[in-house]
């Protein structure tokens, strides 16, 4: 194995997994209430929030990366805030990548959960209420199990999409080993340095990983649907 992947490659893989794991967990925690609100609110600006959530789907990563670099820089609003609370500047740090990825992968997590909530409709909650369940209790014992396929899709897509992130990291990462040099960047560096063999191993691995993840997702969801 060591002959195929250099220690730097393995570092990049670990960093990528760490980033994807952190981002997915945070997005599930932050995205679920947001998805719930999007599914049930009648607020007039719900449309605007829906559009904002979907923006990362269509914006080029360069736009996102550029604004993040400017906003998180020492003169940007976010940069001033982080300096104020003693966090220092975010670009070129793991925390900076997490924030960038939270935005970048947001629609992949929020939209499937929101759609699952919408599909469930108000009926199960009403039934649970007449049976005397408190709202929080009803949410965890009725809604969550019903929305499981949505959560599964959200988790897998959020994780896989963060693994596959490149443009934003390229723009705010600074290519620092064990901090911001993720697999996609490592592959890019291999190609640029004409190290095509190493690039093949990493790129092929990423391709296989992505395919297996999506295949597993579809198989699981199919099985769920048949039940």
């Amino acid at each position: 194995m060591n002959a195929l992947l250099s220690p730097a490659d393995i570092d990049a893989i670990w960093l990528t997994l760490k980033l994807a794991f952190t981002v997915t967990v945070l997005l599930l925690i932050l995205g679920t209430p947001l998805a719930w609100w999007l599914a049930h609110s009648r607020a007039r600006w719900r449309g605007a929030i829906n559009a904002l959530v979907a923006l990362p789907l269509i914006l080029p990563p360069t736009v996102l990366g550029f604004y993040l670099l400017v906003a998180m820089g020492p003169n940007g609003p976010l940069g001033r805030l982080t300096a104020e609370v003693g966090l220092g500047a975010l670009p070129f740090t793991f925390a900076g990548l997490v924030i960038g990825s939270l935005i970048y992968s947001l629609p992949f997590v929020v939209q499937p959960i929101r759609d699952a909530f919408i599909a469930i409709g108000p009926r199960p909650l009403e039934v649970a209420a007449t049976l005397g369940a408190r709202p929080i209790d009803a949410f965890f014992s009725v809604i969550l199990p019903l929305a499981r396929p949505g959560f599964l899709t959200a988790t897998v897509l959020g994780f896989a999409h963060t693994v596959g992130e490149f443009g934003v990291v390229l723009m705010i990462g600074g290519n620092i080993p064990n901090e911001t040099r993720v697999v996609a960047i490592q592959i890019y560096d291999h190609v640029e340095a004409l190290e095509y063999t190493q690039a093949h191993w990493l790129a092929g691995g990423l391709l296989a990983f992505s395919f297996i993840v999506l295949l597993a997702l579809h198989t699981l969801n199919d099985r769920q649907a048949k039940r």
Binding site: L69, V70, G73, P74, P91, G174, N175
Partner: peptide, 15 residues
């Protein structure tokens, strides 16, 4: 920086 253009951009934006 990935290239000299991006290197310049890192400094120009104050990062």
């Amino acid at each position: 920086g990935e290239n000299i253009g991006q290197t310049f951009q890192f400094v120009a934006t104050g990062n």
